[in-house]
């Protein structure tokens, strides 16, 4: 029988893998990608607990998380495009100053 603890273990594992990617990647695009993975790992535990507890509020929260993540990605990618135009590189080491 698959219980919520199985889903929680999977979601914790996905979160840890995403965190590892976030800390080791130097390409800022891939840093953003790792953040997406971590957000969806959290979404998975929300949905599994919603199903377990019989409360749809968990799924409503996932709906909002996805909305915020979509806004975050579009703004993040625009900033990465600007970074590339300014420095000719998307490396996190190229972004040393906030002002230009």
């Amino acid at each position: 029988m698959i219980g919520p603890e199985h889903y929680f273990t999977l979601s914790a594992a996905l979160f840890a893998i995403g965190l590892f990617g976030l800390l080791t990647r130097r390409n800022s695009l891939l840093v953003l990608l790792s953040i997406e993975l971590m957000l969806n790992a959290a979404n998975l535990s929300f949905v599994s607990l919603a199903a377990h507890r019989g409360d749809l509020a968990g799924q409503a929260v996932v709906f909002f998380t996805m909305l915020v993540a979509a806004a975050e990605v579009t703004v993040g990618l625009a900033i990465i495009m600007l970074l590339f135009r300014k420095h000719g590189s998307v490396s996190t080491e190229a972004a040393r100053n906030l002002k230009w």
Partner: peptide, 30 residues
Amino acid sequence: VAGGVFAVLMTLGRPVTGIPAMNADPQISG
């Protein structure tokens, strides 16, 4: 760091899944 976060989630977060369901029938459809 990632392994540490995983261990913390598994020790502190996992007991949350043991809380019994509120509804008598936990099978809901979204």
